[in-house]
Design a protein around this nucleic acid. Structure first.
Lengths: 137, 137
DNA sequence: CTTAACCCTATCGATTTAATAGAATTTGTA
DNA sequence: TACAAATTCTATTAAATCGATAGGGTTAAG
């Protein structure tokens, strides 16, 4: 399941993607538009900025805007940024790999092979969902 | 990601599936064989029993055994039993559906459509992984 | 220099998670 | 019948995580 943070991030990106080119959106504007607690959204937008999805203008009349094409922002990326691995166990993860602590004898645990299959299919599906694909509906 | 409970459940089922027909496995035997904390495993086996995946024999020489074919126990079922919904949000879930609390205007949130696509593919993949498919490797 | 905005860090309360504890119950058998 | 060996059940705990809030600090326009 997605965390609220990830869900809010997607909604915020969706909001930004729906604005006119060159429009700058204030946090409060996004919060109201997407129904997200403002102070919570602040943190999320900062995370999105650190992740190079958005950029900001500080000071009066400042705000946030997309710096990555809505066609290139995928659900997979947002999941990884806020909720971490897409795989079901760390030993089956590409970006968050860790060996199992409780698989004593073999280096590959008995579940790993099956979980790799799941991860591949889920990942492919999640890479197919972009902000743009969510906007046009 | 899978919880430890779900992971341990899968390993325990795998252990049971590898035993001879009619063999009854004691908890301690499974715990040692699959490297799972024994008292924690007790709870998990009870959950698996309530979920009709295994049954037990009480008293001396008692233990656990599969009552469902290893070909019919899927990763999807175990995920649902221990970790709940497979979908990324409750509003996209088949078995754990709940409407979004923060989607004010429309009955369907902006993310739901995309998440339904993900859920369908992930679910199909998870239904394809059975205990039997994990054993033979 | 005031105002309006982003930026940053800390904290909080509630929930969940992983695990442990301890006792009650059941069953086989010497 | 008493003991031993096993499941069953409920409670508790310690730690981590999550969702959210608080309260400033910093930046820039006018």
């Amino acid at each position: 399941m997605l965390s609220h943070k990830a869900k809010y991030a997607l909604k915020a990106l969706l909001y930004l993607a729906e604005q006119d080119e060159n429009h700058i959106s204030r946090t409060i504007e996004i919060a109201d538009g997407a129904n997200i607690p403002k102070k919570f959204l602040e943190q999320i937008l900062l995370d999105l900025k650190r992740g190079r999805f958005v950029s900001s203008k500080q000071g009066k009349f400042g705000g946030y805007y997309l710096i990555k094409s809505k066609n290139d922002i995928t659900l997979a990326e947002i999941h990884r940024l806020f909720d971490g691995a897409i795989a079901l166990l760390p030993c089956a993860s590409l970006n968050f790999y860790e060996p199992c602590s409780d698989c004593k004898t073999e280096s590959e645990c008995s579940l790993r092979h099956g979980l790799l299959l799941i991860r591949d299919k889920t990942l492919k599906a999640m890479e197919g969902i972009t902000i743009a694909s969510l906007v046009k509906k």
